[in-house]
Design a protein around this nucleic acid. Structure first.
Length: 610
DNA sequence: TTAGGGTTAG
């Protein structure tokens, strides 16, 4: 909320006399009090607020709770509220007689403003210290601030006072509590507990929990809960759909995503811009970027999020030039890019090898749009240079950065070293990373990969032992695939699926056909110190190959195959998938950790550049 | 005189 733009007549005629003194007559005092309240009622600028403050001091109303309360609640603008609240709290008045509303106003102002969430919580604690009782309106503000701060213990302590003051049966408070827990990394169980114990549940409760699951990466639980919601007969609304769509996006569940789209149409749900954005994002990230683009073109209202979603979508599919031209179109349409849009644009340049374009936009961002580059922007630039094979330039760039490079940045360079055969350089950077962060598992994996490529098996074994000793594990690679609206997950060597025998037979057949077509296994990818034949066997049991075999068995010839990998696709699987796309005449769309690969007729859209 | 769940990157 902002001040009204139209100036108020009452205030513009205000004149302050430096010699004004009020006689100690109560009637006159009351008139003064009423006048102040009226002035505050029509106060419309920060400047006038300070004038009224002077008047309050002059009229001797410094400790009048009614006036002070009104003063503090005049505006929702942060500067004004901050100013007013410090004036109020520094008064000699007995704060205990202040209304709860005053504190709620202050807490709300802080809760709704960017970086002031901690002040909201502080004001809430001040409220308790002064013995002013919170009410049912206080907690949604406080819990929202805890959500923004994402501090679980803080949230738990507020939860305890909610119970203590008896507001835990209020539906609004319950729902905000679920939301709060869902904003904390380790909060999902506490959220579910509140959800399960709620005597009343409405669509907001369900949406909060579904959205929370999706946000915290428990997307399968999000979808399961959505199904439960339908079974219980609770009607989802458009906000529920946004949450479910975000879970579909995470999982790569295109079929379910399409179902949501038709549900929205069938049930004639409202389609606010957030829902359209979620649909665009879902289609782009589930592999159908053309459909995402089509929806984007049909939208009447577009926010920066809409533009960014589709730019990022194109970037992920390696369509960097289109992403760049869309960015230009956005600027022409009068939408000012923000820091996130630039991350999307720079990553588009990076995935498509547009080195000069990326450099140009990095400079434009700083010079023309005055956006201070964050670590992510530097990360994109380092990635851009590294992927293009400019390892030395990337290192120079890192040395000139005004901020400390993070893990992600070093890892880009190390990956580039690995790909370009600069193994010695890669080794020395990785060793330094391990010295700095000895408990970060992925550093050891990087070093181990480099030794594998150098064929230094002894050193590799040592790295492995070191990881075992420290109790660290490599994140296992997994592949998810959707079939008949169900998601199936495969890990390497997986035998949990009931069709596993058929799947392995198919894998063997694929191997024979591929070899006949000229495929040579990339055995240096295998990180185990075993002989070549076993290495080949181990490659054939990668989760991607199991998923492809599963899809070949269970889908009609010619049906496109789509799946999602949790890690970057490995060199051998990339090469094998190209062969498979040709041999079995299938379009195969793979989303890996970073981007999409569209395999068709023996070629990949990434041009072997990823 | 005040209140709850939603979209982009990392």
């Amino acid at each position: 909320m902002r001040f009204p733009t139209k100036p108020s007549r009452t205030i513009t005629t205000l004149r302050l006399s430096p010699t004004l003194e009020l006689p100690p007559d109560t009637t006159i005092r009351r008139v003064a009090e009423q006048s102040c309240l009226a002035l505050l009622q029509s106060c419309n600028s920060f400047n006038k607020l300070t004038q009224i403050q002077t008047l309050i001091l002059k009229l001797g109303l410094r400790n009048n709770p009614l006036v002070l309360t009104k003063f503090a609640s005049t505006s929702s603008e942060l500067d004004a509220i901050h100013y007013a609240s410090s004036f109020v709290f520094s008064s000699d008045a007995d704060i205990r007689v202040f209304d709860t509303f005053l504190f709620n106003t202050v807490i709300r102002a802080y809760a709704q403003t960017g970086d002031s969430k901690d002040k909201a919580v502080y004001s809430y604690r001040t409220m308790l210290d002064y013995g002013v009782f919170p009410n049912k309106f206080t907690y949604p503000f406080v819990l929202k601030s805890c959500a923004g701060l994402a501090r679980l213990n803080l949230g738990k302590s507020v939860h305890a006072s909610v119970v203590k003051f008896g507001f835990d049966d209020d539906l609004h408070v319950q729902n905000t509590m679920i939301h709060m827990y869902c904003c904390c990394d380790e909060g999902v169980e506490s959220a579910r507990k509140v959800f399960d114990e709620s005597p009343k549940l409405d669509s907001v409760t369900w949406s909060a929990m579904i959205g929370g699951y999706a946000r915290l990466g428990h997307s399968a639980d999000a979808i399961a809960l959505f199904r439960e919601m339908q079974v219980k007969g609770v009607h989802p609304d458009e906000i529920t759909m946004v949450s479910v769509l975000s879970a579909c996006t995470n999982l790569g569940a295109l079929e379910l995503g399409k179902w949501i789209e038709s549900y929205v149409k069938r049930e004639k749900l409202q389609q606010p811009v957030e829902l359209c954005n979620a649909l665009v994002d879902m289609f782009a990230k589930c592999g159908d970027v053309d459909k995402a683009m089509k929806l984007f073109r049909q939208m009447n209202d577009r926010t920066i999020v809409s533009w960014t979603s589709v730019i990022v979508g194109l970037a992920m599919h390696g369509r960097g030039e289109e992403a760049v031209s869309l960015f230009e179109e956005m600027i022409e349409a009068g939408v000012t890019p923000d820091d996130v849009a630039f991350i999307g644009l720079l990553s588009a340049c990076s995935h498509s090898g547009l080195v000069e374009t990326g450099r140009y936009y990095f400079n434009t961002m700083v010079k023309k749009f005055s956006i201070m580059p964050k670590i992510e922007h530097y990360g994109c630039m380092v990635d851009l240079l590294s992927r293009a094979g400019l390892v030395k330039e990337a290192l120079d760039f890192v040395q000139q950065m005004p901020i400390e490079p993070n893990q992600i940045i070093w890892r880009s360079i190390i990956t580039a070293c690995h790909a370009r055969g600069e193994l010695k350089l890669g080794e020395s950077i990785t060793k330094r990373l391990i010295r700095n962060e000895p408990m970060h598992g992925s550093n050891y994996v990087l070093l181990s990969n480099i030794y594998a490529k150098l064929l230094h098996w002894e050193k590799k074994t040592k790295v492995r032992e070191m990881m075992d000793m420290k109790g660290m594990k490599k994140v296992p690679g997994s592949t998810m695939i959707e079939l008949n609206n169900e998601m199936y997950e495969f890990v390497a060597g997986d035998k949990s699926h009931h069709q596993y025998r058929e799947i392995y037979e198919m894998v063997d057949e694929m191997g024979r056909e591929m070899k006949r077509a000229g495929y040579v296994p990339t055995t240096s990818q295998v990180l185990l110190d075993i002989d070549e034949e076993d290495k080949e066997d181990s490659l054939n049991r990668h989760s991607e190959k199991l998923a492809i075999a599963f899809a070949l068995i269970n889908t009609a010839p010619g049906t496109p195959i789509r799946f999602v990998k949790n890690l970057r696709v490995c060199e051998d699987c990339h090469s094998a998938t190209k062969f498979i796309s040709k041999i079995y005449n299938r379009e195969i769309v793979v989303r890996d950790r970073n981007r999409f690969h569209h395999f068709k007729n023996g070629l990949c859209s990434c041009g072997d550049f990823w």
